[in-house]
Simulated scan of single mutants.
Amino acid sequence: MKTYKSIITFLLFTCLVAVPPLALKYSGLESWLVPGFWGMFFFVAGLTFIVLLFILTIQAKNTEMYAPAFLGATTFKLLACLIFLLVFIKTRHPEKVFFVVDFMYLYLLNTVFEIYGLLRNLRNQNSK
Rank of each mutant, 00 (worst) to 15 (best):
Y66L: 01
I55E: 02
K96F: 12
V112G: 08
V112E: 01
K61E: 04
L11V: 14
A67R: 07
L119H: 07
L79T: 01
T9D: 15
Y4C: 07
F54Q: 03
L82I: 01
L52A: 04
Y4L: 14
F41D: 05
I7Y: 09
C15Y: 08
V51M: 03
F99C: 14
G117Q: 14
A69V: 00
E95P: 11
A80S: 12
V100Q: 07
F41N: 05
T48C: 11
W38K: 03
Y4R: 14
L52P: 05
D102N: 15
T48D: 07
F10C: 07
N121G: 09
V17Y: 02
V51E: 07
L22S: 12
D102P: 04
L86S: 13
L12C: 14
L29G: 15
V51K: 09
L16Q: 01
C15R: 06
N126H: 09
L109W: 00
L71R: 05
V34P: 03
F37S: 08
G39F: 01
L85P: 05
T14N: 12
T14A: 15
F98K: 14
Y107Q: 12
T63K: 15
V34T: 05
Q59H: 10
Q125E: 11
I8A: 15
L22Q: 10
W38N: 02
L29E: 15
F113K: 09
P68V: 02
A69L: 02
K90S: 14
T91R: 12
L118W: 00
L108I: 00
I83H: 09
F54H: 08
K5P: 03
F113W: 03
K90Y: 05
A80Q: 04
A60S: 15
T63E: 15
S127C: 08
Y66R: 01
F76E: 00
W38I: 00
H93G: 08
L106K: 06
V34F: 04
V17T: 06
Y105F: 10
W38E: 03
L33R: 13
L106V: 04
P68S: 06
E95H: 14
G46H: 03
P20K: 07
A18C: 07
F84W: 09
A60P: 06
L11R: 07
